[in-house]
């Protein structure tokens, strides 16, 4: 699997760089937040999940149902950029996959001093991430405030 994905990864990296100016770190991730919508297919394959798409005004949602029971959702702007993700279920999904390059931010925050093992929060101008939960019940969300489509409010996402 790593071999077959390597070329696609390069493509996505280039695409992501074009779409998201904030993408400063090397493209080490396959897909996910801040990437192009085509990355959702990669994510679903990596998560071994099935996809269901739902259209809303100004964006659409790709739902990835994982075998473990956890539901991952990727919110895609009309320009094709994944501007938000969330997850909910009995297990924590592969966050390196769905957070893309922002997984590094997550790890850094998790290794820094914070409140307990049941939660993690990042509040930055270019990234909002919240993860929480206990054994058998985890949830979280992350979004890129500067990539939220015009006319769409995070509070409107459903």
């Amino acid at each position: 699997m790593p071999t077959s994905q390597s070329i696609a990864n390069v493509k996505k990296c280039l695409l992501a760089g074009a779409v998201l100016a904030a993408a400063l770190s090397p493209c080490i991730a396959d897909a996910g937040l801040g990437q192009a919508e085509t990355s959702v297919q990669t994510d679903a394959a990596r998560l071994k999940g099935s996809i269901k798409a739902t259209q809303y005004t100004g964006y659409h949602v790709q739902e990835i149902q994982m075998p473990s029971g956890t539901l991952v959702r990727e919110f895609v702007a009309t320009n094709g950029t994944v501007f938000a993700v969330d997850w909910n279920g009995p297990t924590v999904p592969n966050l390196r996959q769905i957070l893309g390059q922002y997984f590094n931010n997550f790890v850094a925050a998790a290794q820094a001093k914070h409140a307990g093992h049941r939660q993690l929060q990042i509040q930055q101008s270019d990234l909002v991430l919240q993860a929480s939960g206990h054994m058998r019940a985890f949830s979280g969300r992350a979004y890129l405030p500067q990539a939220v489509p015009a006319g769409v409010s995070i509070a409107d996402l459903r």
Binding site: F75, A84, D86, N88, A115, Q119, Q130, R141, L157
Partner: peptide, 10 residues
């Protein structure tokens, strides 16, 4: 301390 919100949209 605080506890995170759970979903986009809330």
């Amino acid at each position: 301390g605080t506890f995170p919100t759970s979903f986009p949209g809330s």
